[in-house]
Computed example of a mutant assay.
Amino acid sequence: MANEDLERRGPKNRGNNEGWSSWLIPVFVIANLVLFIMTMYVNNCPKKNTGLQGECVAGGLGRFSFQPLRENPLFGPSSTTLENLGALDWNKVVEGHQGWRLVSSIWLHAGVIHLLANMLSLLFIGIGLEQQFGFVRIGVIYLLSGIGGSVLSCLFVRGSISVGASGALFGLLGTMLSELITNWTVYSNKVSALLTLVFIITINLAVGILPHVDNFAHIGGFLTGFLLGFVLLLRPQFGWEERRNAESKYKAYQYVLLLVSLVLVIIGFTVSLVMLFRGVDGLQHCNWCQYLSCVPSSRWSCGKN
């Protein structure tokens, strides 16, 4: 990915700082794996499967076997199990006053394929970021991005449930982009890194226009992480260590981006949460926004949220 380009900083800026050890991201991965195993234990396909969609997959796993592929092609539990354990559902969040689902849904996954794709991406993106900036800042960005994705998803998606860490992962992608922008003077090969990141982000968002993909969670997570990167991931300008008595530690534009982004994050979360718990349907105020998550074609239909 873009990590290699993004880590090529000038040698003077490295100094003796070897960075942090990464432990939080591996803990997040383990937590997701454990929760998926617990989800499958609760699901108990052999006992609860009605047989209308076929037989349980990998029946030799006993109660850990998967739902029939017609019901869940990702090798995972039933939607009922996910809903009971905390999946994102507009009716339960708003009508049922279960706001905790905005957080719990981040830790659930629809199947083995979904889980592996997200966890491999988390390891690939997150470990490098944690080594550079520490577990506190990256942990905050990950969690708030996940919540931001859940909030935007809930504002625009009704009639279906949503689970997964994709919003948080897109937040890490967003923060990589904003970190590169705000610390522009620190990096070598900056144009190459920027183009690589933009390409990766564009491809991932483009995949979100396919049916059954919650692109609103991706967009919400990305925007949250993008803004938080300006707030939390500032680096001193290049060469500041050698000239610390002669000039400011940070550039003026870094302070401007920090303040503007902080205000936008606070306003964004406040307005979105107020709209959500007042029962506002985002699509009624932005009809074309439906195409951000699914573009109908002759090969598939998007259905209605």
Rank of each mutant, 00 (worst) to 15 (best):
S160L: 07
K12T: 14
L227Q: 03
K92F: 08
Q132K: 14
V112H: 03
L205S: 07
N189Y: 10
R299G: 07
C286E: 06
W300F: 10
N13I: 04
V186N: 15
D5W: 14
N245E: 15
L155M: 10
Y255A: 10
A246N: 14
L24P: 05
Y187M: 07
A206N: 09
W20Q: 00
F66I: 02
G111T: 03
L115A: 01
C45R: 02
F216T: 00
M38W: 10
P296F: 04
S79W: 11
F66V: 06
H218A: 13
R63N: 13
S162N: 12
I161S: 05
R101G: 00
G139K: 01
V136F: 08
V191D: 11
N13G: 13
S145C: 09
T175Q: 02
C45K: 03
N3L: 01
I113R: 08
G239H: 10
N287C: 00
L88W: 07
C294W: 00
A58C: 07
G149H: 05
S248T: 14
L258G: 10
E247A: 14
T81Y: 04
F226V: 02
V260Q: 15
D214N: 08
G76C: 07
E71N: 04
R14C: 14
W20M: 03
E55K: 11
Q98C: 01
L264H: 03
V140N: 00
A87L: 01
T224E: 02
F238Q: 15
S105I: 05
I147F: 09
G148T: 00
S261E: 05
R101K: 09
F222L: 01
D214V: 08
V112K: 09
R235M: 14
L195H: 07
C302H: 06
K47D: 10
A246V: 15
I201M: 02
P73A: 13
N204W: 12
Q53Y: 14
L144P: 01
L33H: 01
I127C: 15
V34D: 05
L85A: 00
L52N: 11
I141W: 01
A168Q: 08
R101M: 11
Q98F: 02
E71V: 14
L173I: 12
G146T: 04
V207T: 09
V42W: 01
E18M: 11
H114E: 12
P26R: 08
E4I: 12
N17E: 13
Q53M: 15
I209D: 04
S272Q: 03
G279T: 14
G229N: 05
G15A: 08
I200E: 15
S261A: 09
S297Q: 01
L228Y: 02
N43D: 11
S298Y: 11
S145Y: 03
G19P: 05
P77I: 13
L69F: 00
V136Y: 11
L283I: 03
K12W: 14
I203M: 13
L197I: 04
E7M: 11
S293L: 01
A252P: 08
A206G: 08
L258S: 12
C294I: 05
T182A: 12
L144R: 00
N43F: 09
G279H: 12
R101V: 13
S178T: 09
Y253W: 06
S150I: 13
N118E: 15
N245Q: 11
V271F: 11
L155K: 04
